[in-house]
Structure formats: C-alpha cells, structure tokens
C-alpha cells in the first residue's frame, strides 16, 4: 500500500488538492473563499499536466551548446532522454486563462459587494428575496 502510494505520490497529491478545491467551491458561503477553492482546483490540474510530462531519468529539453552547433549531434541523440516540454507549454497557457478567470471573478465580487454590501451567499439571497417581496411578486 505504501509502495503503491509512493509510486504515485504526485497523483495522490493531485487528487487530494482536487477534492479540497471542489469541496471549497461547493461548501463555502463566502464568494472569495469560493474563488480560492476554484483556484486550488485549477492548480491541481496544472500539477496533473506537469506530472504527465515527467520522464524518469530525462534531462531538461535543451540542446547543449556543442550539439546545437552541429558537433557530436548523432552521438548525443542516440542516448539522450528528455522530459516532455509540451505539457509545460500547455500549462503556461492554462495558467494565463486561470488568472484571467480569477481576475474576472474578483472584479465581480467587488461589484457584488458594492451592490449588496456583503459577500456572504446567504445574505445576498436574503436581500434578493426581500426586494422581490417589496416589488410584490
């Protein structure tokens, strides 16, 4: 069991983070906390991608100077093992998307606070409900 976990340590951490994030999104009544949960959830996915790209015994995918200039190229490529750089590039994009989403969410929270004077879910629904009643619905 321990061995199984140790083999897949990254995945275990990712699953825990994912569940923590999703739980925070669903269970917290505070809008900012909900965004924090969302960010943790997204971060766990970033880690998942990074883990996919890991190749055991692999070097960083950068050509050494002499190989880049054409020396010992065949010798180098015959035994070189590189980590996969593609997931890293994808995750850079995903991080940008995540930051944009978080910024958008926080901007909305600011406007909600201006309009309602609170960022607690229950109080917002109460305010909406009483204004519905006032309008005579």
């Amino acid at each position: 069991m321990v061995e199984l976990l140790a083999d897949r340590f990254n995945y275990a951490v990712i699953i825990v983070l994912m569940m923590v994030g999703l739980y925070a999104v669903i269970a917290s009544a505070n809008l900012v906390k909900r965004l924090v949960g969302l960010t943790i959830f997204q971060t766990s996915v970033f880690l998942l991608y990074i883990t996919i790209g890991k190749v055991f015994g692999g070097e960083p995918p950068i050509l050494p100077g002499d190989v880049a200039h054409g020396y010992h190229a065949e010798d180098h490529f015959s035994h070189a093992v590189y980590s996969n750089p593609l997931p890293h590039v994808l995750i850079l994009t995903a991080i940008v998307v995540g930051v944009a989403t978080l910024a958008m969410g926080l901007a909305l929270v600011v406007r909600i606070r201006e309009a309602y004077g609170t960022i607690e879910d229950v109080e917002i629904s109460d305010a909406d409900y009483s204004s519905e009643v006032e309008r005579g619905a």
């Binding site: 809008l31 969302l38 989403t101 958008m104 969410g105 909305l108 909600i112 309009a115």
Partner: peptide, 12 residues
Amino acid sequence: LTASFNYLVMGT
C-alpha cells in the same frame, strides 16, 4: 452580478 458569478464558477 450574482448570476454572472455563479455562471463563472460553474463554467470554470
């Protein structure tokens, strides 16, 4: 505002 916020959370 709250509609958009909920949409943002679920959409993300």
